[in-house]
Design a protein around this nucleic acid. Structure first.
Lengths: 354, 354
DNA sequence: ATTAGCACTCTTGCTTGATGAGTGCTAACA
DNA sequence: TGTTAGCACTCATCAAGCAAGAGTGCTAAT
């Protein structure tokens, strides 16, 4: 059963008002603020119908109405219009993101910071998942007789290198042989695939010296692959939610914070979401049933896909926030398009520990 | 004016009781639980004196007494005894730390996790500051005609390497020359010093090709130094504080959480603290005046010094916690003593981004 | 010096009643 | 038949009042 034009208007009014003021909205105030040309009584009747259809709820008998998850869903799908960002927000995004364009992880983190500053909600950003990345080649570079650098280059152009110190000296030939050997074995396979298969069978080799070297190198190789696969998660503005009336109860605030203490779990959850701007409202989430989660994806070089998102109560400014996220992710994708033209080394990797 | 033996006993009893129950403790309950052989009235008189001396406070007329910061300070300095760790805690620390002994950053993070699990407080761990580390040598390794690896080795044995992609090809000679050139310039100088001086004067060179290459390499070099200098901070168990009666007020909980959202600021604060086990109680902190902060230091190879710490309300089990931290830092220092005998490469460095 | 006794204070929890916002129903109206 | 005014009813919220209980501080006796 479809909603009448007037019902939609009333629903929209209720949502707008509730999102703004966080208080149950009554028939009288609707009639006054949004002049729909009908009396409070009529609005009451419509509200009663809307409640019966599941779009509104009643905290208690004599309170105003509150939009349900279903109402927000309708709003997001059909009612809301795209918002233009304020000049201030646009400028903020442009300035702050471009300032750190050359450092990947830092840029991602800044994006999350920005998002929480602009939306006043909790937000996060993740580096792209690289499960599907394939290995292009592997190289072992000599440093001194017992030290070498292991370098892994993916088809996508991602380069990782680690310093290895062996207990015994290696020979130049063994090193070159192993480089080729590994490249041949792994070229074209995904990081994920290599990690999973190699962790099981212990690989030997026909040549003696090679076998020994390989034995020393493999553990580091696997650990490095693992690091490459790891998605980094940056959370920002978690404390913003303390300012929302939804979270004045210490219990709800605690629940909220505890969710995000489990970073690994959260990362998995977020990786599983679809690409593009995705909004899940209240019950549509399997955990955090009183939250809305909005995620959006950005692209790196048009291939890899990372995610950013905001989390807040179901009562949020859906139109503004989705618009902001769209703008922000476009901007990010743009930043990460750069093909080979920087001239700079790729920074952003971390300190190496002895 | 010194405290009498009986006053000390009473003070100790009050502290013990209050730390346990988080409620103002009255004369009657002291007399009952800790049989000091005197009546509540006598205890009341002593308590009155102790209050006058500043060791106790009174939430309101008809409530029991609460220890002041000064009382805790006295307790920490003179009264408390070292506690033996429970077998369970010991085992936990031994098992969980050794499991990740080969990866520096991960071990540090685990230490913080452990600390918050055992103490049920918020905790943190920092990697060592490397301001004082000096450069041993710098090497540039060729990969292909436009790609090279920049490697920085410190006297302490810390190795960092970054992949660089240049816009223009380089020559083998220029590369070797620059390696030597840089090593000569920077050897023996601290990271901090090099970073500060080089960021100011733009360095030219006499040879044409060398100058061009140097111009391309320097920005990455400086950024890498910066990364090496960065102290990593891991925070764990922040949500533990929600379970404490001190933080049932949303405002205090918010204040607490917001302190730690400012990671950079917090890192600076912590770096400035003395080495060893340091306890600062309430007013002794310039911020967080209602918290106690306990930090302790661990050593890497006997030289570099990192910190771990716990943060909680002034009401905490000082004896247990300081003992745990002492044990934990000893254990950590032990783990990080290993000189060259692993055979494994040093893992723990992060994904490198394109 | 110590202690018993007692008045006094202050918090906490509970009840009561007033207020006000808002609904739901009914009957009148266009 | 859809709309509206009117009115009784419900429920949350707030303040005031009251009793109970914990604990102190003082005084006088030991």
């Amino acid at each position: 059963m479809d909603l009448s034009e007037r019902q939609l208007q009333i629903l929209q009014a209720i949502i707008t008002d509730y999102v703004e003021n966080a208080e149950p909205v009554g028939s009288r105030s609707i009639a006054k603020k949004y002049n729909l040309g009908v009396s409070p009584a009529t609005i009451r009747n419509e509200m009663s119908d809307l409640e019966e259809m599941g779009y509104l709820t009643h905290p208690h008998t004599s309170a105003g109405r509150v939009p349900s998850d279903k109402a927000y869903r309708l709003y997001v799908n059909d009612l809301m219009k795209k918002k233009n960002l304020s000049a201030k927000d646009k400028r903020m995004i442009n300035d702050r993101l471009s300032a750190s364009r050359d450092e990947f992880d830092r840029t991602i983190r800044h994006a999350a910071e920005l998002l929480s500053e602009i939306t006043h909600l909790a937000s996060f950003a993740m580096t792209p998942a690289t499960n599907e990345e394939t290995i292009s080649f592997i190289r072992l570079l000599p440093v001194d007789e017992r030290t070498l650098i292991l370098m892994i280059v993916s088809e996508g152009g991602q380069i990782t290198n680690t310093t290895l110190r062996l207990t015994v000296p290696y020979t130049q030939e063994a090193l070159e042989l192993l480089s080729k050997n590994m490249t041949v074995s792994y070229k074209g396979r995904t990081l994920d695939d290599v990690l999973k298969s190699e962790i099981i069978h212990d690989v030997g080799s026909d040549i003696e010296a090679l076998s020994a070297l390989k034995g020393s190198v493999m553990p580091s190789f696997l650990r490095t692959l693992e690091d490459m696969l790891n998605v980094n998660l940056y959370m920002e503005g978690m404390t913003n939610i303390f300012n929302l009336p939804e979270y004045t109860s210490i219990d709800r605030a605690r629940d909220f914070m505890e969710l995000f203490a489990r970073k690994d779990w959260f990362t998995q959850k977020m990786l599983a979401r679809d690409n593009g701007v995705v909004v899940t409202i209240g019950d549509e989430n399997d955990t955090m049933k009183d939250c809305t989660l909005i995620t959006a994806t950005y692209h790196v070089d048009g291939k890899l896909v990372g995610k950013i998102g905001v989390i807040g109560p179901t009562r949020m400014k859906y139109d503004e926030i989705t618009s902001i996220m769209e703008y922000l992710t476009n901007n990010l994708s743009e930043s990460f398009r750069l093909p080979e033209n920087t001239g700079e080394g790729n920074a952003g990797d971390k300190k190496q520990n002895k």
